[in-house]
Design a protein around this nucleic acid. Structure first.
Lengths: 229, 229
DNA sequence: TATTTGAATTGAACAAGTTCAAAAGGAGCG
DNA sequence: CGCTCCTTTTGAACTTGTTCAATTCAAATA
């Protein structure tokens, strides 16, 4: 069902349970001791299995973090829907979607750094830009589509097809910043969110003005440059 | 002299030579076999020293890549100066500075991915945003200052103090993209460079227009949000 | 019920980055 | 020259992520 679960299929119910037990043990230890400090031997012991079992269900230590990421992502659907329903203001909707993520990740901020490192290379199975994560990525982008639909901001025709992905990218950037943000309670990230959201929305409004045509064309050219090939 | 050389000081000339021998051996092997495939034992053997010696001079395997980065950076000074002298057009200057980097890194593109991974965390000594790399970073930013000075683009007073760092950041983003770009000869990156440079320059020109005041203020607010604390 | 087969599990072995206590060099000094 | 002290070098040991051949288990099959 979800493409990036490894192994492709788990046959029995007992196996499914073991799989979960390992992930739970891992998350518990990662949170207690930190990702680096908790060894795979620790994880296996905590889960009551042999070391090799962890690798039967997960490709690597980072893959456990990816499993966490996918788990939260599944759980987010309801919260996302609530955000969209609660307001027609695009600014509030986008902020809402992003804050749902922050809330979910809050208890495991350090942990996600491991994913960040693995994900540097788009060819890595754990990259948020890679092939194996396409499904989650597209589902996430779809939420931004829904946020735009029926909102208070009218989007120029030529920009419209790109906007959902751009907002998703914007969100990824903020999450990246949030993960490495050392300020107390990640205040810098929240200030950055405020400031950039204002800017993004204003840019969207301004971009519809007739005299902004050329600038908009340039911006679209940038997108094409990245996409082609 | 350069803050981020490890260890802080090398006492004797023979030691300096050993240090270089290890780095040269490492780069040779990294290029031949790839960063992952070449082990520290290989590197030490190739350099004619014991394994431990590599760690006497370099903190980690990634630190060898950092040493490469610093070395090229030292060598870039002359090329940078040539770029600035060769034209008054800001666009060409910025493009020139960035392409000097690409040229220097060209033979070791894969290698830099290792730095990218380590540098995800600004607290990591190898992060381009961290404390230990401040000196190189500020020197690089200074080159962008020089590129702006006496160029064909007039910068609004309020934007001026931020622009060098912004251009540096822009360059870092492009380098990041270039490193992971799998298209033949990194064509996507070059197209992206073309398209975004046009956009950046046009944005700069437009930003001086009186009616752009509010938008500019918003953008500056973003910068303050990131800097404060 | 006995057999077979594939999934699940084990734990020892492996690989490679890193550490560290000990040894070797070598420069200055009495 | 012998001694001291600091730098440099050594290589075995350690750690930890990962692999894999062997084993157990349980369900389907005969």
């Amino acid at each position: 069902m979800v493409a990036s679960v490894y192994p492709a299929a788990v046959a029995t119910a007992k196996a499914e349970e073991t799989r979960n037990r390992i992930l739970d043990a891992a998350l518990r230890l990662f949170q207690q001791r930190g990702f680096e400090a908790a060894t795979m031997r620790d994880v296996a012991t905590e889960a009551g299995v042999a070391t090799g079992a962890a690798y039967y269900y997960y490709r690597s230590k980072e893959d456990l973090v990816m499993a966490f990421y996918l788990r939260t992502d599944k759980e987010a659907g309801e919260s996302f829907a609530n955000v969209i329903t609660s307001t027609k203001e695009l600014k509030k909707r986008v902020r809402g979607l992003i804050e749902v993520k922050f809330d979910q990740f809050a208890a495991h901020r350090e942990l996600l750094k491991a994913l960040l490192k693995a994900g540097v290379d788009p060819r890595d199975p754990l990259s948020p830009f890679g092939e194996e994560t396409r499904e989650v990525r597209e589902q996430n982008i779809a939420w931004f589509s829904r946020a735009i639909e029926g909102s208070d901001v009218s989007v120029p025709k030529d920009v419209a097809p790109h906007l959902p992905r751009l907002l998703w990218l914007y969100q990824m950037g903020l999450i990246y910043f949030w993960i490495v943000d050392q300020s107390p309670e990640q205040r810098r990230t929240h200030r950055l969110l405020d400031a950039t959201l204002d800017l993004v929305i204003q840019l969207l409004r301004v971009s519809s003005l007739p005299l902004m045509g050329p600038l908009r064309k340039r911006a679209l050219k940038v997108l094409r440059a990245v996409d082609e090939d």
